[in-house]
Every structure is written in C-alpha cells, then in structure tokens.
Design a protein around this nucleic acid. Structure first.
Length: 288
DNA sequence: CACTTGACCTGTCCGC
DNA sequence: TGCGGACAGGTCAAGT
C-alpha cells in the first residue's frame, strides 16, 4: 500500500478537497469493501458533513458531524480519488477522471451535495472502509496495538530503539515492518532506510548497536519526510486525492533498483527475499 | 508471547 | 500468441 508518506499525501489532499462537504449518497460493490455500510449508512453517513481528515499509521480517518468516522485502509492498491471540483480548470489531470470513474476497480462512491464525488478504488480488494463512532476508534484492535508515529517531533531516538525490545530475535526488516513496533513503515521505506543506515535487512535486532539504531531512526525520518515532500511513491497503483502520481521513486536509492549501481559506492544493487518480502540491498554497504 | 508462513485478490510481467 | 508461475506498496489468522 501506500505507506505512511502516501497516506499522509492523500490526507493532505482530501483535507483541502472534502472538509465541509455534505454526503448526499453512497454506493458500494460488495459488503466486503464496506462491511457495515448497509446497517449504518442511512443514519450516520447520509446528510453528514465532513469535519476533519486525519491519519493514524496507514489508516485514514474521515470525521463526520454525526460523531461517526470513516476508517479507510488502502492496503496494497487502494486509491481515494476526488472528482468534480470546479476549481480544477481545463487541462487539469483530474479532468480526465471525471468520465473515467467509476471504473472496474471502484468499490465505494460517496456523492456530495454539490455533485462532487469521492471514489474508493482498489484493484486487489484488500482495502476497506468502515463506519464507526468516532469515540470507538481507539477500541479497534489495530489502533490498540499500533506503535508510535515516527515523524512526530517529540518522538526520540531513545523511544525508537526501545520499541524494538519485543522483537529481539527476528531480523531488522521484519521488525521495522511490524506496525506494533513503529507505525507506518512499509516495504519501500524499510529498504530505503536500512540502506541509509548501512544495515543488512537480515541482521538480528539484538545485534544492532546504539549507533545503528540512531542512524536508522535518522534516515527513516529523513526519507519519509522527503517522500511526503515529493508527494509519495508511485511504484504502480498509488495516486493522490487528485489522481496524480508522487515522485519519490525518482529519488529512491535501492528500492526497485536491482542491477543498478549503489549511489554511495557503485556496487550493483541486489534483490533478495527477507521476511517474505522483496528486499533491495547494496551488498557492499550492507553486510551481515 | 515471539516468530514464521500462508491467505486474501487481481493484474502484469517474464520465460517457455 | 498462449500459458504457467512468480510477484506486487499490507495485514491477519493460523501454525510452530
């Protein structure tokens, strides 16, 4: 999916586009994409005003005036695309989406009172949209176990290192992907930050030095902040709320760059499998 | 508990 | 051109 920087990019875009709009109607394909839509839509979604768009880890939270919220997880291929704002002039990339959506990947459509629309598209159907009372968000199992936000200013390197205590015997790649350790890190930024800190992804967590945790902490934050600045990574499906791609992949140093030279030492980047995920390393900079 | 692996889906790409 | 298999940004439910 979209990882933290991509979800944050969508959040910022949606904040500009949908806050204040009133939900007029909702349609969805199968109950799986919007499990509780039938039961709750009429009372708590229709006629509600969007009051805020927040993010926790990789989950988007759309708050409604009814004290209910939409929780949205894009998983691997989810998109949230807003269509129809009159501020988009002719030639805006969003123009072509007006007629292109909905398409076969569209799972949920929200139509606002002014005629604009928000589409939840998801090719692989792993993602979901749930409606629940805002006050109950903290009770959702994922929200209970998810770790701290790594980009918060008050999040320190000491806190970062301490979070790994529970995963001492596994490799660092599996640990950093574990959402209960740190929120929001996925496959792209795991590989990018491990390269930045010169740590081999198969190194056991228990073997990392204080210095290595510091380097990982520093580079992870740097690379995620850079990606947000660039509008995220569009490896395949990801687009922002206006249907546009992000450009972080132009700045990627190892991710999906197997066969190309390491930007630091020139050694050919290799691809391997770690923690069940495709993993990219510089075999010279990152050793066991 | 900690850890690993498979499952959930559809589409694309690569080798034969 | 067709077909099978591997693989894709994530998480959960099982298994050990």
């Amino acid at each position: 999916m979209p990882e933290l920087p991509e979800v944050e990019t969508v959040r910022r875009g949606l904040s500009e586009l949908i806050i204040g709009k009133v939900v007029a109607s909702e349609t969805h394909d199968t109950p799986k994409g919007f499990p509780n839509a039938i039961a709750d839509v009429r009372q708590f979604l229709i006629q509600a005003t969007i009051t805020d768009v927040r993010r926790r880890a990789k989950v988007l939270i759309v708050d409604l005036s009814t004290d209910y919220s939409l929780l949205i997880h894009l998983k691997m291929t989810g998109q949230l695309v807003f269509v129809g704002d009159t501020r988009f002039g002719a030639g805006h990339p969003n123009d072509s989406l007006v007629t292109a959506l909905p398409d076969k990947s569209t799972r949920v459509t929200l139509t606002f009172a002014d005629g604009t629309q928000l589409f939840f598209n998801d090719q692989r159907k792993f993602g979901w949209v749930k409606l629940l009372p805002t006050a109950e968000i903290a009770e959702v199992p994922f929200m209970k176990k998810v770790g701290p936000e790594p980009l918060e200013l008050e999040f320190t390197v000491e806190q970062f290192a301490a979070r790994f205590a529970r995963r001492i015997k596994t490799n660092i790649k599996a640990a950093i992907l574990d959402q209960s350790v740190i929120a929001g890190v996925g496959n792209i930024y795991a590989d990018e930050s491990l390269w930045g800190a010169k740590i081999h992804p198969q190194r056991l967590v228990g073997s990392l030095t204080e210095e290595e945790f510091k380097n990982l902490y520093t580079d992870l934050r740097a690379v995620m902040n850079l990606s947000i600045e660039k509008g995220g990574s569009s490896n395949r499906n990801y687009v922002n709320a206006e249907g546009k791609k992000g450009s972080y992949m132009d700045f990627a140093r190892v991710f999906r760059r197997e066969g190309l030279p390491c930007p630091r030492c020139g050694t050919t980047i290799e691809k391997m499998r770690v923690a069940g995920r495709g993993t990219h390393i510089c075999p010279f900079c990152q050793t066991l």
